[in-house]
């Protein structure tokens, strides 16, 4: 995958690549906006997909770019969600301040847990990441008077955004609110992954030893990336709390971490577009399968996961390159 990227880098002149990418981004923004008019009945679902894309983008930063294998990413989503939700219930219902609180919560939890997690690697890191999410979930479960425990945090009632745009019953304001934030996060991440900071993360992914040899403080770079990813996951969590006006224990659950991972691998890791496509496809299939057969949709999801891992391990966005390779070999 990395060698492929290097090849395209060498072949395509940077300015042209930049232009095609920008065009692609504009098309994506167009498609995103169009969903508002195409699915007026299903805005709630579409908005959930958009929130999930933000979350999976954050996971891509951690797994795809920095190579940190984690199965506890929901810890960061849930921290943002509970922070924003509690802030809305007990202090102020202003959405933007709440969003900032969610960002801070995600970043702080990521920084603190990152200090422990990133000293480990492999299975140990996977286990520790799961453990952190489980501990947070247990705390949220037991602090019932504050968080509502297993009933979920109820009573979130957001003020209008800027005092003008009130959240409506159909989710129109919610859609645009989330969509604008998603676009901002996406472009921020594009900048980050192309910056020296992002390149260092990628370098650590390829070879920590070499990066250490050229003087990169590997551990602190990883903590930095993880904290940034925590802030973005916090955004996703806060948006989910504000738009759905509910935070449940599932926001910290293992299933959320696992599903986000499936979406990311389905689309393809290490490319921001992969997070978008993977999330859209997974959630659509999930939605469709669950509405056709609410009891047996897990067959479809399980089958989908196996097909992806066995036949297209690079993810769907890896397919064109694979096809090209295959055609070239055939010739």
């Amino acid at each position: 995958m990395s060698t492929d990227a290097a090849k395209t880098l060498a072949v395509t002149p940077p300015r042209k690549r930049f232009r095609t990418r920008l065009l692609l981004d504009l098309v994506l923004i167009g498609i995103g906006s169009a969903t508002f008019f195409l699915f007026p009945e299903n805005l709630g679902f579409v908005t959930r997909v958009l929130i999930m894309i933000i979350f999976v983008l954050s996971l891509d930063l951690v797994i795809g770019y920095a190579g940190i294998a984690t199965l506890g990413h929901a810890a960061l989503f849930g921290s943002g969600a509970y922070a924003a939700g509690l802030f809305a219930v007990y202090i102020s219902a202003d959405p933007l301040i709440g969003l900032a609180i969610g960002i801070i919560a995600g970043a702080v939890i990521a920084f603190l847990s990152g200090l422990i997690l990133l000293r480990a690697g492999g299975l140990t890191l996977l286990m520790l990441s799961i453990a952190i999410a489980q501990i947070l979930q247990e705390i949220a479960n037991k602090e019932r008077p504050l968080t509502g425990g297993s009933d979920g945090l109820l009573g979130i009632d957001m003020d209008p955004i800027f005092g003008i745009f009130a959240f409506d019953f159909f989710g129109r304001t919610g859609f645009w609110y989330v969509f604008v934030i998603l676009v901002m996060v996406f472009f921020l991440l594009k900048l980050v992954v192309a910056s020296p900071f992002g390149l260092a993360a990628r370098g650590i992914h390829e070879s920590p030893a070499r990066m250490r040899a050229i003087g990169t403080p590997v551990y602190w770079r990883l903590v930095g990336i993880y904290t940034l990813a925590g802030a973005i996951a916090g955004i996703a969590g806060a948006l989910s709390a504000q738009v759905t006006e509910l935070v449940s224990l599932e926001a910290l659950g293992f299933t959320l971490s696992a599903e986000a991972l499936i979406m990311l691998i389905l689309g393809g890791t290490g490319r921001l577009y992969g997070a978008i496509f993977g999330t859209v496809i997974f959630m659509s299939v999930h939605h469709w399968a669950a509405s056709i057969d609410p009891f047996n949709w897990l067959f479809v999801i399980g089958g989908l996961v196996l097909v992806v891992v066995y036949f297209v391990p690079e993810g769907l966005l890896g397919l064109p390159a694979k096809l090209r390779q295959w055609l070239r070999a055939g010739r």
Binding site: I63, A69, L71, G122, L123, L126, A258, L261, I262, I265, T269, L298, F299, I301, G302, G303, L304, V305, L306, V308, V309, Y310, P313
Partner: peptide, 15 residues
């Protein structure tokens, strides 16, 4: 790879 194993075995668990 590690992540693919995680994913494949989650898929099997789902089935």
């Amino acid at each position: 790879s590690e992540l693919q194993q995680v994913l494949a075995t989650i898929g099997i668990a789902f089935l």
